[in-house]
Design a binder for these strands. Structure first.
Length: 829
RNA sequence: GCCGGAGUGGCGGAAUUGGUAGACGCCAGGGACUUAAAAUCCCUUGGGUCGUCAGGCCCGUGCCGGUUCGAGUCCGGCCUCCGGCACCA
């Protein structure tokens, strides 16, 4: 019953499908091949086709859609494309679970999701759709690999890698969360393997430094990236292993504590241990410890923030600064992959070293005092003093402070040839090879004579063979396909073998934004000329989850393409916007296992696309999370169905002249308020559009409609004008409804081809305004004055106002503060 | 532990650069219409208090203090929550 009342007044099903057809037939959202006006590139993150779309997608895309439509109305050439991140583990896993071939599963899902998306009427330019598992696309992903390979930025190397025993493949550092596989949450193991890497670490400095050139990126994302890259400045100092004479370099950010070194610690994985010539008990202990440490997963090691343990090697190292001998230990709190895999331990001034020294009764030395008047007392210390301070017990460096001390000590080491300034990063090279089927094959041929040879560009793509046996087994399924594997070396022509691995799907997603610009180009990944016109991305909208993964990778790719002359900007996106999550009404994440999923499809069927959109926009600002419940819809639904839409409907059979211009002072008194309110609303909606504050845009329109009362004088020219402008203002948020109303008002063509309303700046306020009057900062009354009244004139009015005068009493007026048009504050004593 | 961000009515939230806190909406209550209900429309709605019912006064934006004529907004110190990183030497 409820529904029939709704459909009687506002037949959204009919209206929505009719306008969607109109948009498609008239190619309203097709971006021009060669833009002639200002461009606006509106990008939303493309989707994994692992099921149908959910509320999170819906929210993401309607935000992007409203921005795109707003920019269209502002007269920009808008590029608003969409595509599918179709390769990779999630799709492959879902396919395997259902006993389907990944290709079949993926394309089926794309079909389903695309149909749903088309029903949402999002203004995507579907003619530019890209699918990353199409050979026409991954040909160019492989081309990217080859370019990186040519520049030495793609390379094979042996190292300890993250191995997911469930997915039977290696993972990038970014795909390990809390020591577990990001996708299947299995504990990740460490394995020594040869794998392909992109040398993203060569871009570490620029990836950090250029963040400062991105004022349009949220602070939290920039901070997360900075910390993820983790740059630190320090020194590398060479200790010497006493018996073997081997150089033992260590990295430290605190060279000013060098005289406090009382032991050294090596990572259990350090190759140096093998060269120590350990004997007897020491040899047995160290070997047992190493076996134990390697077995412990990284998460165990990291979680053990309390207890540190290790084992003495029986060997000693020489501190080059003072010739002192210090014990050489193996301890698993030392990470093999950071710095040199060895540390100088200063228990007096490092908490971990302090604990370790206490546990194993290793001497502790104080070499830093907080300041000239505060001295540390070792006997009373329960933890290390880790702040900067004044060097003591440090030979001729005594008395130096903080950064100056660090510089002095390092310079001394440089001069004596046993140290150097050094910078370190937490960021590791990006491991991109996967021992899985569903990915772009790595375009490399291994020749017994020539080594790894890139597949010549004219031979791309290296097609992924349609194999039957694609299940993960620990090595790439492609290795078992002789027709695929056995090829001739492109350099010397001898028999050679393809690389059997496929690429991490994050490689595919690192450059998709450029393919949209020129999706059908068969001779290049994209046209440089077109890229110059559209790039950089004006707004990139997506979830926060990609802060330290995709959003670093795609910046890296852009920089690389910049370096080799393919793009003109070193950064891909000038503004990044992270929308909040959609949760259930209890604040829980929506998931199938919880059974609390609200489908945008059901919602759109029941309420219509536009009302669903308005509900989503209105309930919270875009960056905050939304707790979804039916109540979210109620207010906007009433607004549309009971107020806005019927008002416009009343025009259906009339033929009003809607081409009107107004001058505030020519309007009769009773219409001035309405005209002013309209202009205030236009101004507010435009400002809020720029900052994606849709909730307050809707409030403003609700206020305008509340104040607007056509019942008295229905065909009044001003009322018609207000209606028309209001329809334009709501159009980016409720596009189908707006088109329908626009047509009801006898306007020709799509509303998205009309120009965005401009506020009449001369009609934003009344001649007579109300200002607040405060006495000593407390509100004591309000007075009406002419707009341009001077302060003295206002004072005269105030003094005549009995109520306010009462507050002034016999107090002496010390001073007055007058904010024109707002308030007057009188300070009395 | 370190680094971000946030804390405003019963609820979602507004207040864009320090200038009338609580816009807009939900919920709730009251009224109109109706045989009745739903829907719709109108009114009330931060707390306390006085009231001749016209309106007034006090308190109030996590807590304590500060700057200022004036602080939700700025500064200092806490508390709580959310997010990220986490043995990075």
């Amino acid at each position: 019953m409820e529904k029939s009342a709704r459909t009687m007044k506002y037949n959204f099903k009919e209206i929505e499908s009719r306008w969607q057809k109109y948009w498609e037939d008239n190619k309203i959202f097709q971006a021009p091949e060669h833009p002639s006006r200002d461009t606006f590139y509106m990008l939303v993150m493309f989707a994994y086709p692992s099921g149908d779309i959910h509320m999170g997608h819906f929210r993401n895309y309607i935000i992007g859609d409203a921005v795109a439509r707003y920019q269209m109305m502002k007269g920009k050439d808008v590029l608003h494309p969409f595509g599918w991140d179709a390769f990779g583990l999630p799709a492959e896993r879902a396919a395997i679970q259902r006993g389907l071939h990944p290709a079949e599963w993926t394309y089926k899902n794309i079909e389903v999701s695309r149909n749903t998306l088309k029903k949402t009427g999002i203004s995507f330019d579907w003619s530019r759709e890209v699918i990353s598992c199409d050979p026409e696309y991954y040909k160019w992903t492989q081309w990217m690999f080859v370019q990186l390979f040519k520049k030495g930025l793609a390379c094979q190397k042996e190292g300890l890698v993250n191995w997911c025993p469930e997915d039977k493949t290696v993972l990038a550092n970014e795909q390990v969360v809390d020591g577990k596989c990001e996708r299947c949450h299995t504990q990740v193991e460490k394995k020594l393997q040869t794998q392909w890497y992109f040398k993203i670490t060569e871009y570490a400095d620029r990836l950090i430094d250029d963040l400062d050139k991105l004022p349009g990126w949220p602070e939290n994302v920039k901070t997360m990236q900075k910390e993820w890259i983790g740059r630190s400045y320090g020194a590398e100092i060479d200790f010497i292993i006493k018996e073997t004479g081997e150089r033992l370099p260590i990295y430290t950010t605190r060279p000013d504590t060098i005289y406090g070194v009382t032991f050294m610690a090596l990572a259990p994985e350090s190759p140096i241990i093998g060269r120590l010539n350990l004997e007897g008990k020491y040899k047995a202990d160290v070997e047992a410890y190493r076996r134990k440490a390697v077995k412990r997963s990284e998460i165990d090691r990291a979680a053990a923030t309390g207890e540190k343990d290790g084992v003495f090697t029986g060997k000693y190292a020489v501190n080059p600064f003072n010739g002192e001998l210090v014990q050489l230990w193996v301890a698993d709190y030392v990470l093999a992959h950071y710095g040199t895999g060895a540390v100088m331990a200063v228990p007096g001034h490092d908490s971990r070293d302090f604990q370790f020294a206490k546990k194993y009764k290793i001497p502790i030395k104080i070499v830093i005092h907080p300041d000239a008047n505060t001295q540390l007392n070792l006997a009373e210390m329960t933890d290390a003093y880790t702040e900067y301070g004044i060097m003591v017990n440090s030979a001729h460096f005594d008395g130096q402070f903080g950064q100056v001390a660090i510089k002095a000590v390092t310079e001394y080491a440089v001069k004596n040839n046993y140290g150097r300034f050094k910078k370190n990063f937490k960021l590791r090279d990006w491991l991109i090879s996967r021992q899985r089927y569903w990915g772009a094959p790595i375009p490399i041929i291994h020749c017994p004579d020539c080594g790894a040879v890139g597949v010549p560009e004219e031979n791309l793509p290296v097609l992924l063979p349609p194999v039957e046996n694609y299940l993960p087994k620990g090595r790439s399924p492609l290795a078992d396909v002789p027709e695929f594997m056995n090829v001739k070396c492109p350099k010397c022509g001898k028999a050679a073998q393809r690389d059997p691995d496929t690429m991490d799907t994050f490689v595919c997603s690192s450059w998709y934004y450029l393919r949209y610009i020129d999706p059908n180009n068969v001779s290049e990944p994209f046209s440089r000329e077109k890229a110059t016109k559209w790039m950089p991305i004006n707004r990139y909208v997506g979830g926060i989850t990609h802060a330290t993964g995709h959003l670093i990778y795609f910046r890296f790719f852009q920089k690389f393409l910049f370096d080799i002359g393919w793009v003109k900007d070193p950064e891909p996106a000038s503004i990044l916007f992270n929308h909040g999550m959609v949760m259930d009404s209890q604040g829980e994440v929506m998931s199938k296992s919880r059974g609390n999923v609200v489908s945008p499809i059901t919602l759109m069927d029941e309420r219509g696309v536009d009302i669903s959109r308005l509900g989503m926009f209105f309930t919270a600002p875009s960056e905050k999370e939304v707790l979804w419940s039916d109540d979210v819809i109620t207010g906007v639904e009433k607004f549309v169905i009971n107020r806005f839409y019927p008002m416009v409907e009343s025009y259906r059979d009339s033929n009003p002249d809607l081409k009107q211009y107004f001058k505030l002072n020519d309007l009769p008194e009773n219409e001035k308020a309405a005209y002013i309110k309209l202009n205030q609303t236009i101004k507010k909606v435009a400002e809020d559009s720029e900052r994606l504050q849709f909730n307050t845009m809707i409030s403003a329109l609700m206020e305008l409609m509340r104040d607007y009362s056509p019942s008295d004088n229905k065909n009044d020219a001003l009322n018609d004008y207000i209606i028309l402008k209001s329809i334009q203002l709501i159009a980016p948020m409720a596009p189908h409804m707006a088109e329908e109303m626009w047509a009801v008002c006898k306007q020709q063509g799509s509303i998205f081809r009309s120009s965005w309303p401009l506020a009449d700046e001369s009609a934003l306020t009344f001649d007579t305004i109300t200002i607040a009057v405060q006495v000593n900062g407390k509100l004591r009354g309000q007075i009406e004055i002419k707009k341009d009244t001077s302060e003295t004139q206002v004072m005269d009015v105030v003094k005549k106002n009995d109520r306010i005068a009462g507050y002034l009493g016999e107090g002496r007026i010390v001073k007055t503060i007058y904010i024109p048009g707002k308030l007057l504050n009188i300070v009395i004593k």
